[in-house]
Design a binder for these strands. Structure first.
Length: 567
RNA sequence: GCGCCUGUAGCUCAGUGGAUAGAGCAUCGGCCUCCGAAGCCGAGGGUCGGAGGUUCGAAUCCUCUCAGGCGCGCCA
C-alpha cells in the first residue's frame, strides 16, 4: 500500500527536480493520517520542502499533485494515479491520498493468495545479525525480569528473521567468574550440612532452596564422597556441577516459555581457547593498550568512553571487561554485520565501553545496538510482591509461567516499550477477562475459526475453492461497507507496522497493532453478519475474515504467542 | 557531584517534527429469539511535570528546572 504511493510520489518529485532546480529530491515519508476521514495515506513532503524552495507548503503540494496527474499521462510505468479515488491537499500542506475500492480489493486478493509472504519484507537482505539476550548468571533460576528480556529478545529475533536477516540467538554464560565459584561454595556448604557436618555458610553465598536441591542431588549421586575433603580440593567439582545444573534448569525454563537459543557461549571457553589473550593482543597491536599503576588499561576514551578501563588488574587477573572484549570480538570474527545486546537497564553504564571495544575492532557505530530492559514490578492484587535476592526469595519465571501461562506472560511483557517500567499483576494476568489484552486478540482469531466451522456445517461454498484471481475479485468487490473497507486498509497497514518494528527494534508496535486490528474485527463482527444469506457476500466476508486471520496469526507468531482456534 | 532512563486521562500505558494528543482498565448508560457477550455501542475524563528556546509546525529536538528509577570500582 505504501510502496505504490512512495513510487508515485517519488516519480512526481523526480519530474519536478528540473523545474525546481534541485540536484536531489528528498525521500517522501508516507504515513497513515490520524483520522480516516482525512485519507488513507498521506505525505508531508511538501512541508519539508518549504525551506529549500522558499515557497508556501500548500503551493508546493499543488505542484506535486499536478505532477502526479501529469505522470499518469506520460505513462512512466509502475503504479498509476488510477489507483486513487482522490488526492487532496489539506491542513498546512498534507497531501492526502484515498484509494479506490477496486485497488483495496486487489491488494486484499494478493494478501489472500500470497498470505504471510506478502506481509514480510527483505530489509535484511540476508545480512547476519547476532542477538544476545537473557545471559543470566547460572547461579540461580530465572526470575521474571529475565523473562521480559527473553520475551523481547525472542520477538525481536522473530521479527528480524521475517525481515530478511539471518539471525542468531545467543546466550552468554558467565561461568568463569567469582559468582559461579560462590555458587559452588554455597552448594558445598549445604552438602556438608545435609551430611550432618557443621559447616560455615559463605558470606554473601546463595541462599535459595535450589542450593539445597543441588546438594541433595550430589548426595544422591556421590554419597559422602566429599564430606572429608576441603573446599580447595573439590570446589571446582561443586562449582562445575552446580552451574551446569542451573544452566540445564535455565534452558528448560526458557523452553517452557517458548524461547530457544541457537548458541550458548561459555565465558570459560573464551579463556581456555586463548581468545581473551588474543583480543588484548590485537588491541596492543593497535596501540590501544597501555600500562599504568601496575595494571593494563584499554584506551576506551579514544572511542567516546568517559574514562579508560582496566583489563588486567594489578594482581594479574583479568577483569570481567577483558572477557567481554574477547566475547564481542568473537562475535565480529564470526561475521556478524550487526550486534544487538539486550541488557537489564541497570547495565546501561556498560554500553560506552563495549561500544568502544567494538569500534576498536572496526565495527561502525550504528552496527552495535543495545536494548535496555527495565525492571518488572511484580504485584499480586495490587500489592507488591516482596523479593529479596539476599534471602534467596524471589518469584521465578517458571512459577509465573506455571501460574499465569506462557502466552499471557509474553504478551504482557510485549505490551510496553522495553525501556519503560512495567507492572505485572499476577492475579490480573490470570483473569480470563477483558483485563487481558492477549485474550482480546486471541479471541478474534478463535472467533473467526468458529465462523469457518459454522460455514462448513451450513455448507457455505468454501472461499478456498479453486477460483481464478478474476473470480475472486468479482466477489471481493462486494465488500463495500465502511467497516469492511476500514478493515482492509488496516490489514494493508501491517507491513508498515512490521517494518517500523524491525527498524526500530520495537516488538511492542506489533502488539498494539494486533489489539487495534482485533478491535476493528470485533466491531465489524457485531455489526455485520459474515454468514449472510447471500452466498456471494458470505464468500466475500469469509475471505475478509481469512485475511484477518492471516495477519493476526502473522503478528502473534512474531510475538511468539499462539493463535488458538478454540479457547 | 557526573551520566542514562522515565514523567501523557483516576490507574496502566501508546504516540518515528505534522492535522482536533489516543488505547485498555476503572466509572456511568445501553446491546444476546441471529455466525463465540473472553464481545459490541455510547458518555464523561488532559496545563503532555514546569519554564524558556529552535521553526511554517513541538508530547516529540535543544537548554534550564522539578520529581521518580538506575548506574557511576583494578566487583561480577
Amino acid at each position: 500500500m505504501r510502496q505504490e504511493v512512495e513510487i508515485i510520489v517519488h516519480n512526481a518529485l523526480e519530474s519536478l527536480k528540473g523545474p525546481w532546480g534541485l540536484d536531489s529530491i528528498p525521500g517522501a515519508d508516507i504515513e497513515v493520517p490520524r483520522n480516516e476521514e482525512m485519507g488513507d495515506v498521506a505525505t508531508t513532503v511538501a512541508m519539508g520542502l518549504t525551506k529549500i524552495l522558499k515557497k508556501p507548503p500548500r503551493k508546493i503540494a499543488e505542484e506535486i499533485v499536478e505532477a502526479i496527474q501529469n505522470l499518469s499521462l506520460s505513462k512512466v510505468g509502475g503504479p498509476g494515479v488510477d489507483i486513487f479515488e482522490s488526492i487532496e491537499i489539506a491542513g498546512p500542506g498534507f497531501i492526502n491520498f484515498r484509494f479506490k475500492n477496486e485497488f483495496l480489493h486487489k491488494k486484499l486478493e494478493v494478501l489472500l493468495t500470497e498470505e504471510h509472504s506478502s506481509l514480510r519484507n527483505d530489509i535484511g537482505k540476508g545480512r547476519k545479525v547476532q542477538v544476545e539476550f537473557v545471559s543470566a548468571n547460572p547461579t540461580g533460576p530465572l526470575h521474571v525480569g529475565h523473562g521480559r528480556g527473553a520475551a523481547v529478545g525472542n520477538a525481536l529475533c522473530n521479527i528480524l528473521q521475517a525481515a530478511g536477516f539471518e539471525v542468531e540467538r545467543e546466550f552468554y554464560i558467565n561461568d568463569a567468574g567469582l559468582q559461579v565459584k560462590l555458587l559452588g561454595e554455597s552448594v558445598f556448604a549445604r552438602y556438608l550440612q545435609l551430611s550432618g557436618i557443621e559447616a560455615p555458610f559463605p558470606e554473601d553465598g546463595y541462599k535459595g532452596d535450589y542450593i539445597e536441591s543441588i546438594a541433595e542431588e550430589i548426595i544422591k549421586r556421590a554419597g559422602d564422597e566429599y564430606v572429608n575433603r576441603s573446599l580447595e580440593d573439590c570446589g571446582e567439582f561443586f562449582t562445575d556441577y552446580a552451574y551446569k545444573m542451573m544452566l540445564a534448569n535455565i534452558e528448560k525454563d526458557l523452553k517452557d516459555f517458548g524461547v530457544v537459543f541457537d548458541r550458548w557461549q561459555s565465558e570459560k571457553e573464551l579463556y581456555e581457547k586463548g581468545k581473551v589473550q588474543d583480543s588484548l593482543q590485537t588491541l596492543r597491536q593497535k596501540d590501544l593498550l597501555y600500562e599504568k599503576d601496575g595494571a593494563k588499561w584499554f584506551n576506551s576514551t579514544g572511542f567516546g568512553d568517559d574514562k579508560d578501563r582496566v583489563v588486567v588488574k594489578q594482581d594479574g587477573e583479568y577483569t570481567y571487561f577483558a572477557s567481554d572484549i574477547a566475547y564481542h570480538k568473537d562475535k565480529l570474527d564470526r561475521g556478524f554485520d550487526t550486534i544487538i545486546n539486550i541488557w537489564g537497564a541497570d547495565h546501561h553504564g556498560y554500553i560506552p565501553r563495549i561500544r568502544s571495544a567494538l569500534a576498536a575492532f572496526g565495527l561502525p557505530k550504528d552496527k552495535f545496538r543495545v536494548i535496555l530492559i527495565q525492571m518488572v514490578a511484580l504485584l499480586r492484587n495490587g500489592e507488591p510482591v516482596q523479593m529479596s535476592k539476599r534471602a534467596g526469595e524471589f518469584v521465578t519465571l517458571s512459577e509465573v509461567v506455571d501460574e499465569v501461562g506462557a502466552d499471557i506472560t509474553k504478551f504482557i511483557f510485549l505490551t510496553r516499550r522495553a525501556d519503560s517500567q512495567l507492572e505485572f499483576d499476577i492475579e490480573v494476568a490470570k483473569e480470563q477477562s477483558a483485563e487481558n489484552p492477549v485474550f482480546y486478540v486471541q479471541y478474534a482469531f478463535a472467533r473467526i475459526s468458529s465462523i469457518f466451522r459454522q460455514a462448513v456445517e451450513k455448507g457455505v461454498k468454501s472461499y478456498e475453492s479453486r477460483v481464478t484471481s478474476q473470480e475472486k475479485m468479482s466477489y471481493l468487490a462486494l465488500l463495500t461497507e465502511n467497516e469492511e473497507l476500514s478493515l482492509i486498509k488496516k490489514l494493508l497497514q501491517y507491513p508498515m507496522v512490521f517494518e517500523g518494528a524491525a527498524l526500530s527494534l520495537e516488538p511492542h508496535r506489533i502488539t498494539y497493532y494486533l489489539q487495534e486490528l482485533a478491535g476493528m474485527f470485533h466491531s465489524y463482527y457485531n455489526r455485520h453478519r459474515v454468514l449472510s444469506d447471500d452466498a456471494g457476500l458470505a464468500n466475500a466476508r469469509l475471505s475478509l475474515c481469512k485475511a484477518v486471520q492471516i495477519v493476526l496469526k502473522e503478528g502473534l507468531n512474531m510475538l511468539g504467542v499462539s493463535a488458538p482456534e478454540r479457547m
